[in-house]
């Protein structure tokens, strides 16, 4: 089972729910946690992994073997991202614009382009609380592209039966969220009952309908807002799987790095129920 935890709006409690879901399920199955919010990853603050592996996340960028280059300019012409420019007989490479697609390499008539790894972040792996296998991607500061790191992070292991993979998504509704959602069985949407939460949730529902991924909602900070969220959920026929009322003491505890199930152990059962509902929705869909 592969579950992405997403939201649209930032700060709604994705990581709070994702980490406690992982802890609640760890006694039932092998759980893997992927922190796909590679720009601002926070899952490790709660699940406290000991990282045992760290590898660079790289984009393969072109390197021109200048002595053999005829300066024909074909590589510059085929690059959709303008990561190459030609000045006289020299080809300039702009690593931060390069997507690592390989188009220049394949199109070079002289075969003089080799690809070299350009690190843009790191991929880490380690064991966390309750034997959760923890994977984290980290975008290097000043690097623009999170998506290749998410892609590489998710490829670290193949999904296996009887394993629950939980993907903590970045906020927003652009390409990095889509990369996190690719291939998952279910999207658990954590939102809050405010106009901001609702507006951004609608963006997420648009993506999920395009990608044909079933979803359910956790309403966090229940009680701080109005009814428009629930009306929209009814309209879109999206089930509410859990409510977490607003509670100042909880907010303080979460801020200190404690998890929801540590502060209120009764959420363990609630989250297991939630997982049960997810398996029913996913099972119903595949039938």
């Amino acid at each position: 089972m592969q579950i992405a935890v997403a939201s649209g709006k930032g700060g709604t409690g994705k990581t709070t729910i994702a980490t406690s879901l992982a802890l609640s399920l760890a006694s039932l199955a092998k759980v893997r946690y992927f922190d796909c919010d590679v720009e601002a990853p926070n899952g490790h603050l709660f699940l406290k992994p000991e990282f045992s592996e760290s590898t660079p996340a790289v984009i393969r960028i072109p390197q021109i073997q200048t002595e053999k280059c005829t300066a024909c300019g074909r590589c510059v012409e085929v690059c959709e991202f303008h990561a190459l420019a030609q000045v006289g007989k020299n080809i300039l490479v702009f690593p931060q614009l390069c997507h690592g697609c390989g188009s220049c390499t394949w199109n070079c008539p002289e075969n003089v382009i080799v690809e070299v790894p350009n690190p843009i972040g790191t991929l880490e792996r380690g064991m966390a609380l309750e034997n959760i296998e923890f994977f984290r991607g980290l975008l290097t500061i000043s690097e623009p592209m999170p998506t290749p790191i998410i892609r590489q992070l998710k490829k670290r292991v193949h999904p296996q039966p009887n394993t629950i993979n939980i993907y903590d998504a970045p906020p927003g509704a652009s390409c990095s969220v889509v990369e996190t959602l690719r291939g998952v069985d279910f999207a658990l949407l954590v939102t809050e009952p405010t106009p901001f939460g609702l507006h951004d949730l609608k963006q997420m529902l648009g993506i999920l309908s395009d990608m044909n991924i079933p979803s359910g909602v956790v309403i966090n900070r229940d009680g701080i807002g109005d009814d428009s969220l629930e009306e929209t959920l009814r309209e879109f026929n999206i089930p509410v799987l859990l409510r977490v009322p607003f509670d100042r003491a909880l907010a303080e505890n979460l801020a200190s790095g404690r998890t929801l199930v540590d502060v209120y152990p009764e959420y363990r059962n609630a989250l297991r129920d939630l997982y049960q509902q997810i398996t029913e929705i996913v099972g119903g869909k595949t039938k």
């Binding site: 720009e39 601002a40 603050l45 975008l139 500061i141 990095s176 200190s256």
Partner: peptide, 27 residues
């Protein structure tokens, strides 16, 4: 925007002052 990736880099290019709004949590 949140994060530190491409839209953030575009948003801060050429600006004169950054105001960081943070909250008192480990995150």
């Amino acid at each position: 925007p949140p994060g530190i990736g491409c839209p953030v880099i575009s948003a801060c290019a050429g600006t004169d002052l950054g105001l960081i709004v943070t909250e008192p949590s480990l995150m």
